[in-house]
Design a protein around this nucleic acid. Structure first.
Length: 360
DNA sequence: CACGCGTGGTT
DNA sequence: TAACCAAGCGT
């Protein structure tokens, strides 16, 4: 059934011309990016993880800093998790960092520190999914494996005139099957990167630059004039808003109370100022709850600021208050600490709490 | 398969 | 401004 589908999609499609035009364009015009200086599998790996759902311009400084701090796979494997999260601070999707470190530790333990060059072992590593696996195999090891990301699905939806929903996993698999037939066996790296580069620079989601496109003559959507109608993608749900009371609690030494978030879920293992939802309680009850949770007595002071932060799936609205800890500072909570304002920058904070930290 | 998981830029 | 989008993955 699916074989038929692929066959008909590629029927009358000039694969040779497409390969040639794409690769020529990529090799003559590709951007100079720090992870393109060599094909070191470790560097390719780090870059691919950082680039997941993240723009090139955002990644560049993080990549450079990360490789300076952890120059080799072994360095990353040996590092304290807090240092890895600190290097990831502000980049988002923090489980990427924890999964990456878990995976390089596995590479050290099971593969002598050499990144596996086969689909099975590579794909079994934490955080290495179908896309990243194919990207590493093709870019670092020159293997003709598909690396289907959002760019590739957009480009192929147009070039091959596919109207299936790209949010569905079955559509990604369809494109992977197509790539096995389309990929340039003599240069899989340039082919895969060329598809992504094309999606990033020319075949953009809105107002694609078809007049500048190197594969214009083989693009079915362009010939039909429907490039603006593709790809098909389902709509995202609207975020729900959650309101929080957040406390900047200072003790008599001028230190501030911070806590580490749980090891699973949103912003896992990141640090923050204590906060609780204001859904069903008022501010006084919130303060009392925090006193009980941390085993301290506090006096509520003035409101410092309000912070609104939009995540991909929820919205936080935080009212931030100053508070003084008036009792002994023996905290009942093992994932919390009083630290000096200067030391706060040593801890990895998510952006909404960075906004608070920056005012102290 | 659907959803949770960050952040910043663009339209 | 609200919606959309970006070199996805784990569950």
């Amino acid at each position: 059934m699916k074989q038929n589908e692929i066959k008909s999609l590629l029927n009358n499609f000039n694969i040779d011309a497409f390969q040639q035009d794409l690769i020529d364009w990529f090799e003559s015009g590709q951007r100079d990016l720090p992870w393109r200086l060599d094909q070191d599998p470790y560097k390719v790996w780090v870059s691919e993880i950082m680039l997941q759902q993240t723009k090139v311009d955002t990644v560049i400084p993080y990549f450079n800093n990360f490789l300076e701090k952890f120059p080799t796979l072994q360095d990353l494997a040996d590092a304290p998790e807090q240092e890895v999260l600190k290097a990831w601070e502000g980049l988002g999707y923090y489980s990427r960092a924890r999964n990456l470190q878990n995976a390089v530790q596995e590479v050290v333990a099971s593969y002598g520190g050499e990144v596996p060059d086969n689909p099975k072992d590579l794909g079994d590593l934490k955080g290495v999914g179908p896309y990243t696996k194919g990207a590493i195999l093709s870019i670092a090891f020159g293997q003709p494996e598909p690396a289907v990301d959002g760019n590739v699905m957009r480009v192929l939806s147009r070039v091959l005139l596919v109207d299936q929903d790209i949010a569905k996993q079955s559509t990604r698999k369809l494109f992977e099957a197509c790539i096995y037939d389309m990929i340039a066996k003599q240069n899989p790296s340039a082919f895969n990167q060329g598809l992504m580069e094309l999606g990033a620079l020319i075949c953009t989601p809105k107002s694609p630059s078809c007049l500048l496109c190197p594969v214009q003559k083989t693009c079915r959507a362009f010939h039909e004039g429907v490039q603006d109608e593709l790809p098909i993608k389902g709509k995202a749900k609207k975020q729900k808003t959650i309101q929080y009371a957040t406390l900047v609690i200072e003790n008599e030494q001028g230190e501030i109370l911070i806590e580490q978030r749980p090891s699973k879920g949103l912003l896992a293992n990141m640090w923050q100022f204590p906060m609780i939802p204001l859904a069903s309680v008022d501010l006084e009850h919130a303060a009392a709850y925090i006193e009980q949770l941390f085993g301290i007595e506090i006096e509520l002071r003035e409101e410092l600021l309000q912070v609104k932060h939009v995540f991909s799936h929820i919205i936080w609205e935080m009212k931030v208050f100053k508070a003084k800890a008036v009792s002994a500072t023996t905290q009942a909570h093992e994932r919390s600490e009083f630290v000096s304002v200067k030391q706060l920058t040593d801890y990895p904070f998510p952006v909404p709490h960075q906004k608070i930290r920056n005012t102290l």
